[in-house]
């Protein structure tokens, strides 16, 4: 079971500002889902390698060749805020 503190911790980890009600609802729903997911514990996976990929490819690499970048203005065009050629973000207060 995960408690309110866990939910707050996870929300902070993933940068989600949740209201009091959302935190409480999230706690209930996550517990309900996790109860279902806990059925996995019953599956015997002793000695079973995990599958990270559905493909069996290995060593997919590119040669060290320079390709054209995208123009600076098109890479900055979506910026919510910018200062000249730079992306601008509010001040960083260290946690």
């Amino acid at each position: 079971m995960i408690d309110r503190k866990d939910v707050e911790h996870v929300a902070r980890l993933t940068r989600l500002a949740l209201t009091e009600e959302e935190l409480e609802r999230m706690r209930e729903q996550l517990n309900s889902i996790l109860t279902h997911l806990d059925t996995l514990r019953g599956v015997d996976t002793e000695g079973v390698e995990p599958t990270a990929h559905a493909v069996d490819l290995v060593n997919v690499m590119r040669e060290d060749e320079v390709e054209p970048c995208l123009p600076q203005d098109s890479m900055l065009a979506n910026a919510p805020d910018r200062s000249g050629e730079l992306f601008r973000v509010p001040r960083i207060i260290e946690e």
Partner: peptide
């Protein structure tokens, strides 16, 4: 655990 179950499904 889920990735191991995935192996079983495969």
């Amino acid at each position: 655990k889920a990735q191991s179950v995935r192996t079983l499904v495969r």
